[in-house]
Design a binder for these strands. Structure first.
Length: 543
DNA sequence: CCCCCTTTGAAGTCA
DNA sequence: TGACTTCAAAGGGGG
């Protein structure tokens, strides 16, 4: 219900997310960024420099317009899938969510009953259908629905069968992306601008996303498919990984016909090893659909984990672990940032010469911070849904269940130990990536982000005074990656700046979760302040 | 071969 | 309640 009520939906705490925007001030940035952020790193770099200038001129609306222009040929497949997903999301949000004041009624957010989203969407673009339904349970997936789902209950007004137009189901997965600029989903992408057509003229609600748009995250579940008889054919396997991958062979779903096809499997493959075994019954959703998040214990095991070959899967060699073996490993739902990373990683990689994930992640972290609130909001919303869905699918699941599954590679460096550890660690990581980052993006990135992070986002929001470091990125020359404390930094007392957004929950009450005009205005002003603020603040005085 | 690194966020644990 | 820890993705680097 979170959003239903005027954005207030707390139920999941979803709203919190919205807040996170670390940089309120960034709003503007977003504008410029929308351009920059999403796009190439190169742009980013340059943009960073110019951002401030650009900002002033740009407006949200403009932003929206611009995005469309951006097209990135190189979008990756998986990214695309996500793009679609985001698109859909974005559209909805834009249209219904952010823009429309009345989004309160917005059905999809709540997804109250979605018993199983996965089910709902049929084979059609798995994600699409699923996603849509989630959002608009009542609505049939428009695009696909028109084509495939005969049963579509979709209210006439809502359904837009038209959409189908965009791309044929069988179109290559990538194709769709192309259609929409890939950019759209990129952080910078302006939500609404996407396409005018997106909104339902009548309702004003964003039209159903094109199937392609649907979220890849939710792979179609076999079961889902079952409900809808339609060819998977057009299902795009984009590598896009679904949030929860489904084991290729894993499904036992009753609908053989719908069984995952090769393409699908490819999708899945990313997460599931080919030999993955069918998830234990309990792992299945009520519907009997395995949740993507479920990974067979053996398989998903981290590298160190024992690999269980298909043959092995059944039994655990070691009695003690039997339980684990039996239990499928249900992954945590991805958070907003992770979602973002998945989408953008490919892009960043393509743009940059960097290959190391650590470096890429630094860049992504920066970009994340540079995203506009709205853009981030999309991801937060997405993540929220993921959590919701996940919770529905695995009611009893707890993050704790996964504890210990992964080797504890964690740094044991406790806060206390930091100093020393820090020195040790910092040496390599941080510095190491600098060069590369520079190439693509400003180096400051990781560190920058931290620095950047304005005082707590929340704080920033709340009090304009708080300097948002946001721009730091642009300006800061480097802070370098070295972040003394490593992850701890965020919490580290010494660091004045909070990187992380404060839980929205606290805020959201006062503010609309989605950036409301009002909110934006506030932010805007804030931003102005922010800009005036010397970057120095950003710099973390820490030590 | 396996863990580390890196990012943010959510959720769990502990004091 | 706050501080801290784990895990989520990803993939090259390094031991």
């Amino acid at each position: 219900m979170p959003q239903l009520n005027g954005g207030g939906g707390d139920d999941l705490g979803a709203n919190d997310e919205m807040i996170s925007f670390k940089d309120e001030g960034e709003q503007e940035e977003k504008i410029s960024e929308n351009v920059s952020a999403e796009r190439d790193l190169d742009d980013v770099k340059s943009s960073l420099v110019n951002e401030s200038e650009n900002n002033s001129s740009s407006s949200d609306s403009e932003q929206a317009e611009r995005r469309p222009l951006l097209t990135r040929a190189d979008t990756e497949s998986y990214e695309k899938t996500r793009d679609y997903f985001h698109e859909a999301l974005r559209r909805q949000q834009d249209g219904g969510f952010f823009k429309s004041p009345h989004y309160p009624g917005y059905p999809f957010l709540m997804i109250p009953d979605l018993t199983n989203p996965y089910l709902s969407n049929g084979s059609l673009s798995p994600s699409a259908r699923t996603y849509l339904q989630m959002k608009w349970p009542l609505l049939d997936v428009p695009g696909s629905a028109g084509l495939k789902d005969s049963r579509s209950p979709t209210p006439g007004h809502l359904s837009n069968k038209v959409p189908v137009v965009q791309h044929a189901p069988h179109v290559h997965p990538l194709t769709p992306l192309i259609t929409y600029s890939n950019e759209h989903f990129s952080p910078g992408t302006p939500p609404s601008h996407l396409s005018p057509e997106i909104l339902d003229p009548k309702t004003g609600i964003p039209r159903t996303p094109h199937p392609s748009e649907l979220s890849p995250y939710y792979p179609l579940s076999p079961g889902a498919v079952g409900s809808i008889a339609h060819p998977l054919s057009w299902f795009m396997p984009q590598q896009g990984q679904h949030m929860y991958s489904i084991p290729p062979g894993g499904f036992r779903h009753p609908y053989p016909a719908l069984a995952m096809n090769a393409s699908m499997s490819s999708l899945v493959s990313s997460r599931f090893s080919p030999h993955m075994v069918t998830p234990p019954p309990h792992s299945l959703h009520q519907t009997g659909i395995p949740h993507p998040a479920i990974v067979s214990p053996a398989i998903k095991q981290e590298p160190g984990g024992e690999h269980i070959s298909p043959s092995m899967h059944a039994k655990s060699p070691v009695p003690p672990k039997k339980e684990e073996d039996k239990k499928p490993h249900i992954k945590k739902p991805l958070n907003a940032f992770m979602l973002y990373m998945k989408e953008m990683r490919a892009k960043v990689v393509a743009e940059c010469t960097l290959k190391e994930s650590a470096a890429i992640n630094q860049i992504l972290g920066r970009r994340w911070h540079s995203l506009s609130r709205e853009e981030q909001a999309k991801y937060y919303e997405l993540a929220r849904k993921e959590r919701q869905l996940h919770s529905q699918l695995y009611p009893g699941w707890s993050a704790r269940d996964n504890y210990g599954k992964r080797k504890k590679r964690k740094r044991e460096n406790k806060p206390d130990s930091k100093p020393e550890d820090f020195s040790i660690r910092s040496k390599k990581q941080c510095v190491q990536y600098l060069p590369s980052e520079k190439m693509c993006d400003s180096p400051a990135s990781s560190h920058g982000s931290m620095l950047d992070s304005p005082a707590t986002p929340s704080a920033a929001l709340a009090s304009p005074a708080a300097p948002a470091a946001t721009h730091s990125e642009q300006a800061q020359p480097l802070s370098l990656t070295t972040k003394p404390e490593g992850r701890i930094s965020s919490s580290s007392p010494s660091t004045p700046i909070l990187t992380r957004p404060i839980p929205f929950t606290s805020l959201h009450h006062s503010m609309l979760s989605p950036p409301s005009p009002f909110h934006q205005a506030a932010l805007h002003s804030h931003h102005a302040l922010f800009q005036s603020q010397p970057l120095s603040l950003v710099t973390k005085p820490t030590e």
